[in-house]
């Protein structure tokens, strides 16, 4: 009896050892739920983060200091944007930025900043990162605030005396703010 148990224990120990060798000590597979890191990459410096951290959230997080008025915006727009988006933002040839209110539920919806966009902060984020396409990320914060103010003014969302900055921009409530719903699919048939 006694020896028998010992033998069994011994076998168990050997098995455990084998298991350790294969999976533990010699093994390389790290299970997905493990928290073990691989020691790859290096800590990012704040300078590295700052130069790429250009996104602006709907609460205004990420907006830089600076300010711009509708009047200044008119100048920026005419000089750097009008060629593609038309003198008043309605004419094209590229995306219409102005008008279209009340069209979304019709047969001919006109989706513009004024009629469709739910957040004004998106304008700052997008214009700085992508516009004008020939020289993205070259406008100064003051120029971006100004041209955003001008586009919102053209859409009747702010008045002519408006000056935008990191406090006032996220406070703007866009007309189509409640116009979006979550994905309900599958919805057909």
């Amino acid at each position: 009896m006694c020896t028998c148990k010992r033998v069994r224990l011994g076998t168990l120990a050997v098995l455990c050892l084998v298991w350790l060798c294969v999976v533990g000590v010699g093994g390389t597979r790290i299970p997905p739920e493990s928290s073990q890191t691989f020691g790859l990459g290096k800590p990012a410096t704040s300078a590295e983060i700052q130069s790429w951290n250009i996104d602006v959230g709907p609460d205004g997080e990420g907006l830089p200091p600076g300010q711009g008025s509708v009047q200044e915006g008119a100048k920026v727009y005419t000089a750097t944007c009008a060629a593609c988006h038309g003198p008043t933002g309605r004419e094209g040839p590229m995306n219409r930025l102005v008008a279209g209110e009340g069209t979304l539920g019709t047969d001919h919806p006109v989706k513009t900043v004024g009629s469709y966009w739910p957040y004004a902060t998106t304008l700052y984020d997008y214009i700085f990162r992508a516009m004008p396409p020939t020289a993205p990320q070259t406008l100064s914060p003051d120029e971006v605030y100004a041209v955003v103010a001008w586009i919102l003014f053209q859409n009747g969302i702010v008045d002519e005396t408006t000056v935008l900055d990191r406090q006032s921009l996220p406070a703007i409530r866009m007309p189509n703010r409640e116009g979006f719903v979550p994905d309900p699919r599958p919805d057909v048939p």
């Binding site: 602006v56 709907p58 469709y116 998106t122 116009g179 719903v181 979550p182």
Partner: peptide, 26 residues
Amino acid sequence: GPLMTREETSKYTDLMPDGKARQFTF
């Protein structure tokens, strides 16, 4: 939370007949 980038608001949202648009239809 979502940052409401241009590609998930102005574009890549699906306008329905009632004028509402579906968002994050991945």
